[in-house]
Simulated scan of single mutants.
Amino acid sequence: MASQPVHSDSDDGMDEFMDRFTTQRYKKGFSETNWEEEFNKVPMFMKTAPEEIDPQSYPELACLQSIIHDEDRPPEEQATSLKDEGNAFFKEKSYQKAVASYTAGLKKKCGDRELNAVLLTNRAAAHFYLGNMRSALNDAAAAKKMKPDHLKALMRGVQCCVELRNFSEAVKWCDEGLAAHPADAKLRELRAAADKHNRAAERDARKAKVQEKKLRGEKEALLAAITDRGIKLLQPAKSRRHGSGSEDEDEPASAAIAQLSLDGLSSREVTGSQVFLDERGSLHWPVLFLYPEHQQSDFISAFCENNCFLDHLAVMFEELPTWDTDRKYSIQNLQLYFEDEEKEKLYEVDPEAPLLKTLQRKRFFVKAGTPNFIVLVNGSLFCKQFLSGKKIHKL
């Protein structure tokens, strides 16, 4: 009797499956449009690692990561895997991710000092390229403390100190490195450059100190000259307290003059000029002339205290200004005043008197480092209207 063929369970439906396989298109295969995207999901062919690893989208990568970070393995193995991961990110210039991997490796707190020193040094390098110089220097210092002769840590420390312009500290790092590696050419080169920068920085610091001392001396001499002349500076930051009501010009100043300081000489910020003391001991002030009738002004950057007002007015009005359409601002018609804002009073100025005499008057306060004066045409309609109702102190 002929034997019958025996079919195992594994053969059930195989013929049917093969028929379908040869006649139907595989729906989950790579297509011309998605093959690059699909290849990039395979760890071996990935060009860049994803920001977040979703097991559904990247099952193979999630599996590898679970193997790498297997918490059941010894801390040394886990730290080594994280170090390698950080190195891979570093090569891709993904420095933030590299820092995260090295940090995770350090958190394993393995007992291998050599490995921990490498993790710190590598993290220092990643911080360095991110521009985090302080963090990089801290990591290099920690690695050096853990392994004093670690060449890469020593070099990274030098580079960080140079970037932070702490050249004297860079020299110290080089000396420590050369003590352990006396023949290292790169360290010698770094030390020579750091020492050169350090000597230049020290020279610049000495020059700055001398210049600062000189400027301080000039300022003290300037303030002493102003004080000796009895000139009062109105401090811009100080509040003023009102006077007792007396209108006598010889009354002691009631404005908040306080201690004389350079706060009252702030005109350079506004006008570009400031009072100065010349080699003969004379003060030169920036002075502002105001013409309220026409809303115009004139500025003299250096009015010598010994010159009278007419010296400048003669030059200023040698030709009548274009805004003087009525042709009335001739030098013989001009009247000068200064204003005491605290007492709301105008004081007439003698145009033939030197500037110093006016600045020394009891109720004159130099505001913002620039004396200013009001110029009016004597007898004009505007002059009468402007002075109407104001308290005037005549000469």
Score class of each variant (00 low, 15 high):
5 P>D: 07
5 P>H: 01
8 S>E: 08
15 D>Y: 09
19 D>N: 12
20 R>K: 08
22 T>Q: 11
23 T>H: 11
24 Q>S: 13
26 Y>C: 10
29 G>N: 10
30 F>W: 15
35 W>R: 13
37 E>Q: 15
47 K>V: 10
51 E>K: 11
55 P>Y: 10
65 Q>A: 09
67 I>M: 13
75 P>H: 08
78 Q>A: 09
80 T>D: 05
84 D>V: 08
90 F>V: 01
102 Y>M: 07
107 K>Y: 08
107 K>I: 02
117 A>K: 01
118 V>Q: 02
120 L>M: 04
125 A>P: 00
127 H>F: 14
128 F>D: 00
130 L>E: 07
131 G>P: 04
134 R>E: 11
136 A>G: 07
137 L>R: 08
143 A>N: 00
143 A>H: 01
148 P>I: 06
162 V>F: 04
165 R>E: 13
171 V>Q: 01
171 V>P: 01
173 W>A: 06
179 A>T: 09
192 A>I: 03
194 A>C: 06
197 H>Q: 07
198 N>V: 03
199 R>Y: 05
200 A>C: 00
202 E>F: 04
203 R>W: 07
203 R>G: 00
209 K>P: 00
209 K>V: 01
210 V>A: 11
213 K>T: 13
216 R>I: 00
220 E>F: 08
220 E>V: 08
229 R>S: 11
236 P>Y: 04
246 S>E: 12
250 D>L: 10
252 P>G: 09
252 P>L: 12
252 P>F: 10
254 S>A: 10
255 A>S: 09
256 A>G: 14
264 G>E: 07
268 R>Y: 13
269 E>N: 05
272 G>V: 05
272 G>S: 08
274 Q>P: 00
282 S>D: 12
286 P>A: 11
287 V>Q: 03
287 V>R: 03
301 S>L: 03
304 C>N: 09
308 C>I: 08
309 F>C: 05
312 H>T: 04
317 F>A: 05
320 L>H: 09
323 W>P: 09
324 D>S: 11
330 S>H: 15
330 S>W: 08
333 N>C: 09
333 N>V: 04
336 L>A: 04
339 E>H: 15
339 E>T: 01
342 E>P: 00
347 Y>F: 15
349 V>M: 05
349 V>A: 06
349 V>E: 02
357 K>T: 07
357 K>Q: 12
363 R>K: 13
364 F>L: 10
370 T>F: 01
373 F>A: 04
376 L>P: 04
377 V>W: 07
377 V>G: 06
379 G>S: 08
380 S>K: 09
387 L>N: 07
